[in-house]
């Protein structure tokens, strides 16, 4: 199967602090990959490099066979872990911004996502709750017809009902032509949608593999393996 992401010997340092240490990782087309680790493990750094927001210190990162740049940004749809919309906007303005920026933005898909999330076009961004905000951001990101979706903590800090809706939206929008990378430390909620898992600890990959194979080998859920890897 074809790899959508190929990472070889990736290192990122912030002055003297090593955030990512010699990471090697391939992600196949059609896979949903969970990058798991506590805060400060390097998840967001890794994702920002893939999204083209940070440059690596050394190593090679290819998406769809190309180095990070204009092309890769055009095929990567990225959900940051914090809000990126202006307060004065209405949902409609946010949609237009996305439409202008991304030629792969699918307005019909966006409308479906909005109604699934029970959001309305004329709602003001300012007036949205945290959960609604997250649902809107995810709708914008999933409405693009991209090859790679990168979701940074998509269910962080939202209530359980919103969490379920977000997970449903992710599953409904899965297609075998694109891949997804999802970072999370809320493993229990996410584990049934992950094909592969990557455990990141202090900038190193300490464990990686197919989620089902790990469950089978260890006779444990990913959530329990997580506690084992990161617990004291």
């Amino acid at each position: 199967m074809k790899n959508i992401v190929e990472i070889k010997g990736l290192t990122k340092k912030y002055s003297s602090k090593v955030a990512l240490n010699n990471i090697n990782l391939n992600i196949e087309k059609g896979k949903v990959v969970g990058i798991l680790g506590p805060n400060g493990s390097g998840k967001t750094t890794l994702i920002k490099i893939l999204a083209g927001l940070l440059r690596q210190t050394s190593g090679e990162v290819l998406i769809d066979g190309r180095s990070i740049g204009v092309y890769t940004k055009s095929i990567v749809s990225y959900l940051p872990d914090r809000s990126f919309l202006y307060k004065w906007m209405k949902i409609e303005d946010a949609m237009n911004l996305y439409k202008d920026f991304y030629s792969d933005f699918d307005e019909e898909k966006f409308n479906e996502l909005l109604s699934f999330m029970k959001l309305e076009r004329n709602m003001k961004i300012d007036a949205l709750s945290k959960g609604m905000h997250e649902k809107l951001n995810l709708s914008l990101v999933l409405a693009r017809n991209s090859k790679l979706y990168i979701l940074d903590e998509p269910i962080g800090g939202v209530d359980p009902v919103a969490r379920d809706q977000i997970i449903d939206a992710i599953i409904n929008n899965y297609n075998e032509e694109s891949s997804m990378i999802i970072t999370t430390h809320l493993v229990r909620d996410m584990e049934s949608i992950l094909d592969e898992v990557v455990f990141l600890k202090e900038g190193n990959i300490v464990l990686t593999g197919s989620a089902e194979a790990l469950r089978e080998e260890r006779g444990k859920q990913i959530d329990d393996i997580y506690k084992e890897v990161f617990g004291e």
């Binding site: 059609g30 896979k31 949903v32 379920d164 997970i167 449903d168 599953i171 409904n172 899965y174 075998e176 049934s192 949608i193 992950l194 094909d195 089902e212």
Partner: peptide
């Protein structure tokens, strides 16, 4: 079934 059980489609396929 993937939607109903909230499980990755590849897992259902398997």
């Amino acid at each position: 079934l993937s939607k109903e059980l909230k499980v990755n489609p590849n897992t259902i396929q398997r």
